[in-house]
């Protein structure tokens, strides 16, 4: 996949976004851009505001200030058009355990307006790609944690989104499953040109060449690739940079 032309809109553009729960400010003037075809890590400790940000970008909450654009479409002004370009893997498991893999995927395909024929073809393709084709008729309850996550990724890709959001998708998975999932999503950026926002608090999921947005106490503390963050913190290791930057902020 070649890089998108300069004129192509970013997969996600967030500008001046703030959000409060009562008096507590969960997000404060957050702004960043996720280009198409790029794996971007949203790095932050628990409680940094990652889930609130996801809830705003998926329009479970509405942004009262700032703007959110998905592929150049304003989420607030044209929510249905913007959401059609978005695929999401939530932190919580959101598949129906009593339905089969295929039934879960057909449900999602219908919600996104795919015909039965289109849905069948895409389900087959996504399950093949994720090595889950032989489990299509199994109930989700019978799958391992890693397989369920892969089903959720397949589901998020069925309607061919341009932006994929994943909220701590590897939490609770073993090392092998984690690696498989991270590798697959990175592959999607390269082959499909997807813009990916991957929220995590696990430093070992970040590669040096990834774009990183460091969110801390509801604010963007730093943004850039791993090397830029290390340079900013004047350390060699991204883990150290994370600790140093967040501690400096806390102090």
């Amino acid at each position: 996949m070649s890089s998108p032309p300069v004129s192509a809109p970013p997969a996600l553009e967030v500008t001046g976004l703030s959000h409060s729960f009562g008096r507590r400010k969960a997000l404060d003037d957050v702004g960043f851009t996720i280009p198409q075809g790029r794996f971007t890590v949203l790095l932050g400790q628990n409680g940094a505001g990652k889930t609130t940000l996801f809830n705003l970008v998926t329009r479970l909450y509405s942004n009262r200030s700032g703007s959110i654009e998905i592929m150049g479409v304003d989420l607030r002004a044209r929510p249905t058009v913007a959401l059609a370009k978005l695929g999401v893997v939530f932190q919580l498991r959101t598949v129906d355990l009593d339905l089969s893999v295929k039934q879960n995927l057909l449900y999602h395909a219908g919600l996104h307006g795919l015909s039965r024929v289109q849905a069948q073809a895409r389900i087959q393709a996504e399950l093949d790609r994720l090595s889950l084709a032989e489990r299509a008729n199994d109930k989700v309850r019978q799958l391992s944690g890693g397989q369920v996550r892969r089903v959720e990724i397949a589901r998020a890709l069925l309607h061919k989104p341009r932006l994929l959001l994943l909220d701590e998708p590897t939490v609770g998975l073993d090392i092998g499953s984690r690696q498989t999932i991270v590798d697959h999503v990175r592959q999607l950026c390269a082959t499909d040109g997807l813009g990916v926002l991957w929220a995590t608090h696990l430093i070992d999921e970040v590669r040096a060449d990834d774009a990183v947005i460091l969110l801390h106490q509801g604010r963007v503390l730093a943004a850039g690739d791993g090397a830029t963050l290390c340079a900013k913190a004047e350390v060699k290791d991204l883990g150290q940079a994370f600790t140093k930057l967040t501690e400096a902020r806390a102090a």
Partner: peptide, 18 residues
């Protein structure tokens, strides 16, 4: 609470219709 309502609400259709 379990999250599956989110899948419905994130669909690209008006929320009232869903």
């Amino acid at each position: 609470e379990m999250g599956s309502m989110r899948v419905l609400l994130v669909s690209p259709l008006p929320r009232w219709y869903l």
